[in-house]
Write a protein that binds this DNA or RNA. Structure first.
Lengths: 332, 332
DNA sequence: TTGTATGCGTTATCAA
DNA sequence: TTGATAACGCATACAA
C-alpha cells in the first residue's frame, strides 16, 4: 500500500504538503503540486478510505436498507436514490440482513434510508438518539434525526376500495400485509373508513405477508368460500400475483368471478392477463426524495416529512359487478 | 461519540484492557472484563468501523457491483451471495455506478464481485495488480487475484439454437447483447457453430443491448422483413420481453408467426402468454459460488475458475415450423 | 493480569 | 509556501 508518506519521501517534501497538494489546496506552489501529483500517479497512489473517514468523521456514503433483495419494487427506487446521492457527492450502498445494521452505528455510513422490516423502531430510535441520521420509508417515527418519506397509503387504499365499490361490488376481501406492518395498517384504516361509509358492503380481512405465498393462501380461502362474484384488494401486487397463480388452477376467472386490485404497479402487472388494476406511484421520485431529505438532514437543515402521491390504474382484472354476474350466469 | 478511551476512564483501567475485554481476550480477569462490558453497554459504546478497518487493514465487507439496479436477474443472485458472506462473517454491500468503483482500491471493501459493464477490464486488472481481490461474473480475466464464475454461455446458446432447429426452423434471427459484451460474444460463437453445422439455415444477427429497447428495435426489423414464420433468439429475457411488446402491436403472434426464445429465465417469463422458452440456471447458486470463491481468495487459497450450468426451458413461444406454417396458412 | 506505547493513513493546526 | 506534529479510535507488541 502506497501512502502519502511514500509520496512525501520520493518528492522530498513533508506529508502535509502532499496532503495539501492532493486535496488541491491553493497553499502550495503549482510547481511542487504538479510534481507531487505526478509522483502520486506514478506510484498508483489511492487514498485510504478508512483513514480519511476516521479523520474527517464522515464517509460520504449513504446506505439504503432493504428487507430483502428480491422485491420487484426496488429498481427505479434505488436508481432515484443513487442519482441524487451521486449528484451531491455521496455514494450509495445497498444493504440487507440483520448483520448489516451495524454499519449505521459504527459510522461506516453517514446516514441510512430504511425500507426494512428487520429494523425495529426501537433500534432506529436508539441509533437516532446516538446521532445517526435516518430517513424511514416504511413507518412513522418521531425524532429530530429521523425524517419520513411515506407513501400516501390512505389515499391509495381509498382509491382502490372506491374503485371496487364503483364497479358495483358488495363483497370485498382485503388481503393485508404482515402483522404490524405500518403500510398495511394505514391501508386497512382507509378501507374500513370507505367500506363503513358505503354501508351495505361485506368485507373480510385476510392476513397476508406481502409475498406471493400470502396471496396464494388468501386465494385458497376465497375459493373455498366462493358463492358468486367477489372483489379482492391485495395490499401489494406481489400478493396479487400469488393470488392469480392459485386462481389460475381453478375454473374461476379473474375479471369475471374474481375482481382483483393490487398496490405498487410493479412492472410485472403489465404482463398479466388480464391487466391487474393497481395503485401507482413514482418509485424513482420516492427514492430521489428520500436521498434529498437525508442529505439535507446531514447538512443540518430542518426538513418536514414528505408524502408520495398515488394514482389508480384501472385494469381488466376488475369489471362491473352486473356484467360479471351476467357472465357468471351465462357461464353456469 | 463514545470510544474505548471513555470506557477506560470510567472503569479506571487503560484503553488496552478495555480493548482486550471487548474483544473477549482471555488475558483479562472475568471481573474486570464484566465491569468493562457493563460500562460499555451503559455508555452505548459501538466500535468505530473506520478505526478498526484502518488498524486491522480489513473491513470484513465484500462488495458486489452491478451495471444498474434495474435488472430482473438480481434478487436470487444477491440473496445467494449474502447468505454465504454472512455465514463467513462478512457483510455484503451492493454498489452501482462509476463513482462507487473507488470503494475497491480505497479498501473500503475487502473484495469485489463484478457484474458490471461500467468496469473496464483494464481497470479491474489495475486493481488486481495492486492486490485487490476480485471475482468476475461477466468476463474472462486472467490474474492471480481474479477468479471467474461464469455462466456456461456456449452450452446455453447451443441448447437454444438446437431447440429452434429441432422445431424445424430455418430462418433464425439472433438478437445479441451490446457490442463487446463477453456473454453475448460467447453465445454468438455457439450459435454460429450450431447453425453452420446444420447447413441449410439462414441466420441474421441483430445487435441488441440486453434491454427492452433492444428487443423492440429488433422486432421492428423482423416485422419489416416478415415473409413467413421466423425464429428469434434474444440473448436475454429482457430483450425478449421488449420484442414481445412490439410484436403485440401487430397482427403477428408469438408461437405462431414468430418463434421466440430468451436467456435467463427471469421470473416475468412465467407470466408471459405464451410462456417464453428460455435458458435457465440457478441464480442463487451463481451468487453463492461467487462469494465462496472470493472468500477463498481472501483466505489465500488457490481456486480454479468455476462454471454455472444451464438448462433449456421449453415454452409455447416456440412451436414446430410445420404446425406454425399450417396455422399461418389457415390464418391467412 | 494490566498498562504503556506505537502505528494504521489521513487531515489540519500551528510554527517556521 | 512548507514542515513538524497532533489527533481520529482502535489493536497489539512489549513492559511491568
Amino acid at each position: 500500500m502506497v501512502s502519502i508518506k511514500d509520496i512525501a519521501k520520493k518528492a522530498g517534501v513533508s506529508i502535509s504538503t502532499v496532503s495539501y497538494a492532493l486535496n488541491g489546496s491553493s497553499k502550495v506552489t503549482d510547481e511542487t503540486s504538479s510534481k507531487i501529483l505526478a509522483i502520486a500517479k506514478e506510484l498508483n497512489y489511492v487514498p485510504n478510505a478508512a483513514a480519511r473517514t476516521l479523520k474527517k468523521r464522515e464517509s460520504r456514503i449513504l446506505g439504503v436498507f432493504l428487507t430483502d433483495f428480491k422485491g420487484d419494487v426496488y429498481g427505479d427506487l434505488l436508481d432515484g436514490m443513487k442519482e441524487v446521492c451521486n449528484a451531491q457527492g455521496y455514494d450509495l450502498i445497498v444493504c440487507s440482513g440483520k448483520r448489516s445494521h451495524r454499519m449505521l452505528p459504527e459510522q461506516m455510513i453517514d446516514g441510512a434510508i430504511i425500507l426494512d422490516q428487520t429494523f425495529t423502531s426501537e433500534e432506529l430510535l436508539t441509533y437516532a438518539e446516538r446521532n445517526s441520521k435516518i430517513v424511514v420509508l416504511d413507518r412513522e417515527l418521531d425524532h429530530p434525526n429521523i425524517n419520513q418519506v411515506l407513501l400516501d397509503n390512505k389515499a391509495g387504499a381509498t382509491l382502490a376500495t372506491e374503485f371496487l365499490l364503483e364497479m358495483g361490488h358488495k363483497k370485498i376481501y382485503i388481503v393485508s400485509g404482515p402483522e404490524g406492518s405500518f403500510d398495511s395498517n394505514q391501508r386497512m384504516k382507509a378501507v374500513r373508513m370507505v367500506a363503513d361509509r358505503a354501508g351495505d358492503v361485506e368485507w373480510i380481512e385476510i392476513v397476508g405477508n406481502f409475498k406471493k405465498s400470502g396471496g396464494e393462501r388468501a386465494a385458497e380461502q376465497v375459493i373455498n368460500e366462493y358463492n358468486g362474484p367477489a372483489a379482492v384488494f391485495c395490499m401489494n401486487d406481489e400478493m396479487a400475483i400469488g393470488f392469480c397463480n392459485r386462481i389460475a388452477e381453478t375454473d374461476l376467472k379473474v375479471g369475471e368471478h374474481i375482481h382483483l386490485i393490487g398496490f405498487d404497479n410493479i412492472e410485472l402487472t403489465n404482463y398479466m392477463q388480464p391487466r391487474l388494476a393497481t395503485i401507482n406511484y413514482s418509485k424513482r421520485k420516492w427514492g430521489a426524495l428520500a436521498s434529498e431529505q437525508l442529505i439535507k438532514i446531514l447538512a443540518g437543515e430542518q426538513v418536514d416529512h414528505e408524502r408520495i402521491y398515488v394514482t389508480l390504474i384501472k385494469g381488466e382484472s376488475v369489471r362491473k359487478y352486473a356484467d360479471a354476474a351476467k357472465r357468471t350466469e351465462h357461464h353456469a
